[in-house]
């Protein structure tokens, strides 16, 4: 068997809230295999967002080991983490986080513009083709020159997903991706995640809604910085 995609060992992360230390992650150990579909559930303050930030290389743990593709990454330099985020991880946020000034195509192209720093093969033509492909994947190719404020909430989230997958990442991290959407649109977004999962992407999704969490194969429940439950759906 291959090395697991993600391996966390004894991860700790503490925040200072005023003078009170908050133990956001306490000795978290976790293994995630390639192509899992995981939901992380828990009340606010349970540490699930911190876990996502650590997994997404947006934040560094205080202690512990994080192996991504078998390589320890818990203390790689800032530039290296930017490169790993660019090449291996796609982010989907609750509030979409699209650039208001740029149209859908420019938004989706954004990660590739930075990929060009690492890989000279990312020409303007290639960037455009990949971005159009990602927009086609989320069925929004016809809206590529619309600005975010000209799109509906569901469409905006689909643009954000296109941006997340445009560089063919191994991991898709979604933080409350349906939190700002109505249940029908939310369901469509979840269906899209399922499709991406079937195409081989590892999807990790934070939610506080058990019904949404139930769509995943594996559900990790967090409470007080600890993993309270880690169970596989019986389907």
């Amino acid at each position: 068997m291959n090395a697991p995609l993600i391996e966390l060992e004894q991860i700790n992360k503490t925040f200072m809230m005023g003078k009170e230390p908050i133990l956001a992650l306490r000795n978290i150990s976790l293994t995630i295999q390639e192509n899992e579909f995981i939901s992380v559930i828990g009340p606010s303050g349970s540490g699930k967002s911190t876990l996502m930030n650590v997994l997404g290389l947006l934040d560094q743990p205080d202690s512990g080991v994080y192996r991504l593709d078998g390589v320890p990454v818990q203390s790689v330099p800032d530039d290296e983490r930017a490169k790993l985020r660019n090449q291996k991880i796609g982010f989907v946020f609750q509030v979409f986080n699209l650039l208001p000034r740029a149209d859908a195509l420019r938004n989706v192209e954004m990660p590739l513009v930075y990929s060009a720093s690492y890989d000279r093969s990312f020409s303007k033509t290639k960037i455009r083709e990949l971005a159009e492909g990602a927009l086609r994947r989320v069925s929004l190719l016809d809206r590529m020159s619309h600005k975010p404020n000209e799109l509906s909430g569901g469409q905006r989230q689909r643009v954000a997903i296109a941006r997340a997958i445009v560089n063919r990442p191994r991991i898709l991290l979604a933080d409350e991706p349906t939190g700002n959407l109505d249940s029908k649109t939310g369901s469509e977004i979840l269906a899209l995640f399922e499709e991406l999962h079937h195409e081989g992407v590892t999807v990790i999704m934070v939610t506080h809604d058990p019904k949404i969490a139930a769509r995943a194969r594996r559900t990790i429940s967090m409470a007080d910085g600890l993993i309270a439950k880690d169970e596989y759906a019986h389907s």
């Binding site: 997404g56 947006l58 800032d78 530039d79 930017a82 490169k83 985020r85 660019n86 090449q87 982010f91 986080n97 699209l98 650039l99 954004m110 990660p111 930075y114 990929s115 720093s117 941006r163 560089n167």
Partner: peptide, 16 residues
């Protein structure tokens, strides 16, 4: 600031 965060998340280095 948020734009900076988004750009950094998708792979922009500090120098970018």
């Amino acid at each position: 600031t948020r734009e900076i965060g988004i750009r950094r998340a998708v792979g922009a280095r500090r120098r970018d």
